[in-house]
């Protein structure tokens, strides 16, 4: 089958493998057969005009959206489905939940738990879901707070923090589950301009430390300096992908060129 041919062509050792991923919302096809690979330790930035499907693609990787066609593998496991004798079976929500522990996600609107303090936000999943010891998790949570530069804000509620601080707590919260990969869905789009830098700095540190990341962003500067691969999407397909130098300085496609002209 076509899928198998693709599998051989593309790299099988990648941490994240997307093969012919299709997604429809009613009559609207937002992903029209996406192939993508993310290798361990690499940073991939997804760029493209709004409505191009990049956020949807990201949400498919941890099965927040189910896909209509194709397959997604994370860490060698098919996401959201079990495959048996060539047939796909829907997974139980608890099994999906278990898969998601390996996939951290940071949202545009932060989505911190407002009834919990910063430290409680970070500790909730490792203690309650992964059942790790509270004292260990607590120690790690403080290390994470230090990493994102918010040690003094451990006992504050999200409403007492600025947007940039909230987003950094959200990053720490996702990291606390020790995921194999981090997904960022426009992490700086809801922030005031002067707060963007702090968040990007944390993300840059993560990238340098070898965290595998997929980032949907409009921050061209960040993509240029931190990304190993830049993927440009438009109208549900990957138009162009390559190193930041190639895509930004020598775009091959008219649509990429048009987009870059409009944002730079």
């Amino acid at each position: 089958m076509g899928d198998q041919v693709l599998n051989q062509v593309l790299d099988d050792t990648s941490l994240v493998r997307l093969r012919g991923v299709r997604k429809r919302f009613g009559p609207l096809e937002v992903l029209k057969g996406i192939d993508m690979d993310v290798r361990e330790g690499e940073v991939t930035c997804l760029l493209g005009p709004s409505g191009s499907g990049k956020s949807t693609l990201l949400r498919c990787i941890n099965h927040l959206e189910s896909i209509n066609g194709g397959k997604i593998y994370v860490d060698g496991e098919l996401v959201g489905y079990r495959e048996k004798n060539g047939e796909l079976y829907e997974m139980h929500p608890r099994a999906v939940a278990k898969q998601r522990r390996k996939i951290g996600m940071v949202f545009q609107r932060f989505n911190l738990f407002p009834h919990k303090t910063s430290i409680e936000n970070i500790m909730e999943a490792p203690v309650g879901v992964a059942r790790r010891s509270r004292s260990d998790v607590r120690r790690e949570a403080f290390e994470l707070l230090e990493k994102v530069g918010l040690s003094e804000w451990a006992n504050h509620y999200p409403a007492q923090l600025s947007g940039g601080q909230q987003q950094r707590i959200a990053i720490a919260r996702a990291l606390a589950m020790k995921p194999k990969i981090m997904l960022f869905d426009e992490p700086t789009s809801a922030l005031d301009p002067e707060l963007v830098g702090d968040v990007l700095e944390v993300m840059r540190d993560l990238a340098q430390a070898g965290t595998t990341m997929v980032v949907v962003t409009h921050e061209i500067g960040f993509a240029r300096s931190a990304a190993d691969t830049v993927v440009f999407m438009d109208d549900g397909v990957v138009v162009e992908s390559g190193s930041p130098g190639d895509v930004f300085d020598h775009p091959q496609n008219d649509r990429t060129r048009g987009f870059l002209d409009s944002v730079l």
Partner: peptide, 24 residues
């Protein structure tokens, strides 16, 4: 977004209901 955040952290629907949604 609360449900999505809980799901992305690997919480099961029931855990999310009891610990995240109901208290809010």
């Amino acid at each position: 977004g609360q449900r999505e955040a809980a799901a992305s952290l690997g919480m099961s629907p029931r855990y999310c209901f009891m610990r995240i949604l109901l208290p809010q």
